[in-house]
């Protein structure tokens, strides 16, 4: 025991590195992308993972990486200014310091999807943690079959990464369908729930891989629609959200059944989640 404990005493995983904000981009009225220079020892991240970002006296929150994991340069975090910490993070200017721990959590099975059709379903801010996967799918486009992004959000003004999505759509690498819950007259796109987009795309359900991220209610119905279309449960992957404090499975907050969402998730396959998603207040 003592040897084990002594060896483990070396570093404190709760200590953040101090990293530097190098850029900030406004995505929508309340969503910002924060660019942070990689701190010493940063070894990159996988699509779907998150960092813990900390500000002194305010607190620490999990924020998904939204940039290209293969691109050199700053780490991008897309954050919605909703709480005290996230609002302060969103307000950081280039040059500001921010505490950073990470990366944490499981990743989208991007490499594993090689050879298959890939259906990416995003709801609202859920597009942010999916964007790193989209970058990788585009970068190695020839390795995949058909790739479609189905994205539902609140209104045209809430569409994240809009210019980038338009550019991608023009380049015809991905089939991109965007729908909103409500729109004023000048919106030319779809209005309706995101699951209605599914019948519009061509894909081979049985062999395809689906990556889904959004509010839990949206993910439940998205998974049902994918199942109805014939996608097998183990090939549907959701990214769960729960309260995360430590990100290393020691604080207990993020438990979802027996899983710690911070380290066993956030990305988990639907066969593992299905029964639990039907239990209220789990």
């Amino acid at each position: 025991m003592s040897a084990m404990a002594a060896g483990a005493a070396a570093t404190d995983p709760m200590l953040p590195a101090v990293a530097r904000v190098v850029g900030r981009r406004r995505e929508t009225a309340d969503v910002w992308t924060l660019e942070v220079a990689p701190p010493d020892g940063w070894a990159g991240f996988a699509p779907g993972q998150f960092n813990m970002l900390y500000l002194p006296g305010l607190g620490e929150v999990p924020i998904s990486m939204s940039g290209d994991p293969a691109a050199p340069g700053p780490i991008r975090h897309t954050v919605r200014a909703v709480g005290a910490v996230s609002a302060a993070l969103a307000a950081l200017r280039p040059g500001a310091a921010v505490g950073l721990r990470g990366p944490y959590g499981s990743a989208w099975p991007v490499a594993e999807a090689a050879g298959a059709d890939v259906v990416v379903m995003a709801g609202g801010l859920g597009l942010a943690p999916l964007r790193p996967a989209l970058y990788r799918l585009r970068a190695e486009r020839a390795r995949y079959g058909r790739v479609a992004l189905l994205y539902g959000t609140r209104s045209p003004a809430d569409i994240l990464f809009r210019r980038e999505l338009e550019r991608w759509r023009r380049q015809l690498d991905l089939e991109i369908e965007v729908t909103v819950d409500r729109a004023a007259g000048d919106w030319r796109g779809s209005v309706g729930v995101v699951t209605r987009l599914l019948p519009r795309i061509a894909f081979e359900p049985v062999s395809s891989v689906a990556l889904v991220c959004g509010p839990e209610v949206m993910m439940r119905f998205a998974a049902d629609a994918l199942l109805d279309a014939g996608v097998p449960e183990p090939r549907i992957h959701l990214s769960m959200e729960r309260n995360m404090r430590c990100a290393i499975g020691q604080c207990g907050h993020c438990q979802f059944g027996a899983d710690f969402v911070c380290k066993d998730g956030p990305v988990m396959s639907y066969d593992r989640l299905r029964a639990r998603l039907k239990i209220r207040e789990l």
Partner: peptide, 13 residues
């Protein structure tokens, strides 16, 4: 069903 989901305003802050 779609109306219910829209009514929930799932993506609202």
């Amino acid at each position: 069903h779609a109306t219910r989901l829209q009514l929930l305003d799932l993506y609202a802050p």
